[in-house]
Write a protein that binds this DNA or RNA. Sequence first.
DNA 1: GTCTATACCCTGATAGAC
DNA 2: GTCTATCAGGGTATAGAC
Lengths: 223, 223
Amino acid sequence: MARTTTTRERLIRTAAELFWRQGYAATGVTAILRRAGVTSGSFYHFFSSKEDLLLAVLDATEEMLQVEIFGPAEAATEDPIERVFAVLDFYRRYLVSHRFELGCPMGGPAAELSASRPRVRARVAGLFKIWKDAVEAFLVAAGDRLPGEVDRGALAEMVLAVMEGAVIQARARRSLAPFDAAVGQLRRFFDLLEDRAGRAAEVPVSAIMERGGGAESADWRAW
Amino acid sequence: MARTTTTRERLIRTAAELFWRQGYAATGVTAILRRAGVTSGSFYHFFSSKEDLLLAVLDATEEMLQVEIFGPAEAATEDPIERVFAVLDFYRRYLVSHRFELGCPMGGPAAELSASRPRVRARVAGLFKIWKDAVEAFLVAAGDRLPGEVDRGALAEMVLAVMEGAVIQARARRSLAPFDAAVGQLRRFFDLLEDRAGRAAEVPVSAIMERGGGAESADWRAW
DNA sequence: GTCTATACCCTGATAGAC
DNA sequence: GTCTATCAGGGTATAGAC
């Protein structure tokens, strides 16, 4: 209902981008204040510490996952398996639109702070679970297109692992090649799973394949 | 030929562990000096800056990849595909033996510094390539056990992505469950690929499977 | 809620004797 | 090669007026 961005929101969004770009420890509170046009007094009115601000950023990330990623993926296609790849395509576009300078909002804090900031670690673990559950729901919706013996939760964890690993590699190489290679192999895996499920059902499978085109343009900067 | 650890080596190993645990930016030079029992003057005799030290750590990582991971994986089993999983098993044991407090020596710096430290980014990209090439070599050695149309390089990139993503998730959850889930699905993928390759060869496949037991105990701390 | 001013500490790095 | 002493700057966070 806020007609314009509040100071608190501006701090969260500014901090988010800086954290995603250069990490938490390397980002000074001063830099956040300068870029947000906010003074120290206001900052500590809303947040008790820099870590508290990061936790608020992670809270905002939870909302963002639904609004910017899973919602659009659902809107992009009815096909549950294509929805999984629409999610991955979001990260692909995110990487290029920021020229590989921003990392994953979950993976970055997870890699940097899991050992030293218990509250951050726990919060990130929660985000990973939300992400995994959302993908798992797509996989469950795929029903018997996947073999019955495949654990949908485990498969969702693998999708998440591929995404995180692909993003890290793409940023280090400044190239989509490793991302596309990894996701391409994931696609092959799904094709084989579908093939096996079809085979098991002893049905030749007709025109199941018409593979959607991926989600529309979405951007975490476009909050 | 150094009979005992030199000051330079001690700095590198001490810094490595601190960087892996708490990240680069969060690790002060002073903390490294204290734990290594070295004074500031000696440090700047060997290294021109903190970043220079990190680059030396990454150089050491390259050696370590061969000595601690790929060498042992080759020694553990003759089966090229099992060698891939022996490599992944190394990371599994690494995670538990350090109680999820240490991150991946490549993935950590990649996630934290790819955008802000060009030299680090380039060096990490080189390490990723070395890792990928080593796995690709195993996959090439697997010959026609994998379908001919499968790009061995792309498959190796996917293995790397799964490893990095699985390590990040495991650290955030402080649990092997997400790691095992992701690697378990990767195993299923390989099984399907082998099944398909066998099918294509129109050979029923006999006793190809006798799956090795994984590498011996190895530990990056045991340098 | 926002401002200015500042406390206080730790940072990476250097100087120069030994 | 290693030591002690130290610099200059930035770090997070606070105090108290408005």
